[in-house]
C-alpha cells in the first residue's frame, strides 16, 4: 500500500505553512483558540498527575505516609527513601546494573541489525529483496504462540537465567525494518549511492560512509525505541529468568509491589508470621519507581528532535 502524502515540513510537524492569500482564512477564531488551549492544558495536567503522585510520595516522610496515606501534598517531606535506595548494594542495584547493561547491548545490536537488514531491501538491485522483505514481514502476521516460544527460548536457545535473556529477544524488529527501509528510500537518493559505487567504493564502504550519515534521524529513532523497549521490558524477565541475580529493574520493582500488597492485604491472616512494620517502606518503593523512570525522562528531550523526524519520514511516505 502506498500512502500518498506530501512531505511534512521535516522535523517540525508543529509549524504551519504561511498563507499566500492576504488574510488567513483558515485561522481559528481567538475564542476557539482559547478554548482549545484550555482543554489541552487541562488534559496535560491530568496526564502529568500519575507522574506527580509517584514523585511526591517518594519524597513524603514515612511517618506522614503511614498516618495519612497517600496525599497530593504531604505534611512532611523527606529524602530518606533515596538515601536508603543508593546506600545499600541490594537487589535494586543489581537489577539496575543488569538493566543498564542489557539496554546498552540491546540498543547497539538492534540498530546494527535493523540498519543492516533494511538497507538492501531499499535497493533496487538486490535480487532477493522481495523474499527477505516477506521473511521479516510474515513474522508480524503469524507466530508460534507463547507456549512454544517459552519452550524454545528456554530449552533450545538456552536463554533461561542469563543476562542475554533480557535483551536478545528484543534486539530486532520487523516493524522497524519496514520503517527504516522506507526511510532509506526517501532520504538517500540512489544517485549518490551509484556515484559512490562508480568512484570505486564497495557496498560496505558506501553504506558506512554515505548511507549511515544521511540516515541518522532514522537510526536514532530505532535506537530510542529499542532502548525504551528494553529498559521497560518486563516480559523477557518474567518468562526466562528465575534467578534473582539476573532480574531486570522492571521485574524487581513489580515483584516488590506484588509481595507487599499481598502481605498487607492478608496481614490479619498471617498474624505473627509477618511484621508489617518491617516491610520495605512505602516511600522506598515509590523512590524505586522514580529511579526507574528517571533516565528515560532525562533522555527524552535529546531524542525528541530526532524521532519525530525519523518517525514521520520513515512511516508516512512511501
Amino acid at each position: 500500500m502506498t500512502v500518498k502524502t506530501e512531505a511534512p515540513s521535516v522535523g517540525n510537524i508543529f509549524a504551519k505553512k504561511k498563507s499566500r492569500v492576504g488574510r488567513d482564512v483558515l485561522a481559528i477564531t481567538p475564542a476557539t483558540n482559547l478554548a482549545l488551549n484550555l482543554l489541552l492544558a487541562f488534559s496535560c495536567i491530568l496526564t502529568l498527575i500519575p507522574v506527580y503522585v509517584i514523585v511526591i510520595s517518594s519524597i513524603t516522610s514515612e511517618a506522614s505516609l503511614a498516618a495519612n496515606g497517600y496525599r497530593l501534598w504531604p505534611e512532611e517531606f523527606s529524602g530518606m527513601a533515596y538515601r536508603f535506595l543508593f546506600s545499600q548494594g541490594s537487589i535494586v542495584m543489581t537489577a539496575y546494573k543488569n538493566t543498564v547493561i542489557s539496554t546498552l547491548a540491546g540498543t547497539v545490536l538492534s540498530v546494527v541489525m535493523v540498519g543492516l537488514y533494511a538497507y538492501p531491501l531499499s535497493r533496487d538491485n538486490f535480487k532477493f529483496g522481495t523474499f527477505f522483505t516477506f521473511f521479516a514481514f510474515f513474522t508480524m502476521l503469524f507466530n508460534g504462540g507463547l507456549v512454544s516460544y517459552y519452550m524454545v527460548t528456554r530449552q533450545v536457545l538456552l536463554l533461561q537465567n542469563t543476562l542475554w535473556a533480557l535483551f536478545l529477544p528484543s534486539a530486532f524488529s520487523p516493524f522497524w525494518v519496514i520503517v527504516m527501509r522506507t526511510f532509506y528510500k526517501m532520504n538517500v537518493p540512489s544517485e549518490i549511492i551509484e556515484a559512490a559505487r562508480i568512484d570505486g567504493a564497495g557496498e560496505w564502504r558506501t553504506f558506512l560512509q554515505i548511507v549511515v550519515p544521511l540516515s541518522v534521524p532514522g537510526l536514532a529513532t530505532v535506537a530510542l525505541f529499542s532502548a525504551i523497549g528494553i529498559w521497560n521490558n518486563f516480559f523477557n524477565c518474567l518468562i526466562l529468568v528465575d534467578d534473582a541475580q539476573y532480574y531486570s529493574l522492571q521485574f524487581t520493582i513489580y515483584t516488590t509491589l506484588n509481595n507487599i500488597r499481598f502481605l498487607l492485604e492478608n496481614a490479619d491472616k498471617m498474624q505473627g508470621l509477618v511484621n508489617v512494620s518491617e516491610l520495605p517502606s512505602q516511600t522506598f518503593r515509590m523512590a524505586m519507581a522514580v529511579v526507574t523512570v528517571g533516565p528515560i525522562i532525562l533522555a527524552y528531550p535529546f531524542f525528541q528532535r530526532f524521532f519525530i523526524k525519523g518517525l514521520t519520514i520513515g512511516a508516512i511516505k512511501g
Partner: peptide, 19 residues
C-alpha cells in the same frame, strides 16, 4: 548485511513455529 537479522528471525520467530 541481512544475515544477522535472518539469524535472529530464524531463532526467535521461525524456530518456535513448528512447536
Amino acid at each position: 548485511m541481512v544475515l544477522p537479522g535472518v539469524v535472529w528471525l530464524f531463532l526467535f520467530s521461525y524456530l518456535p513455529m513448528p512447536g
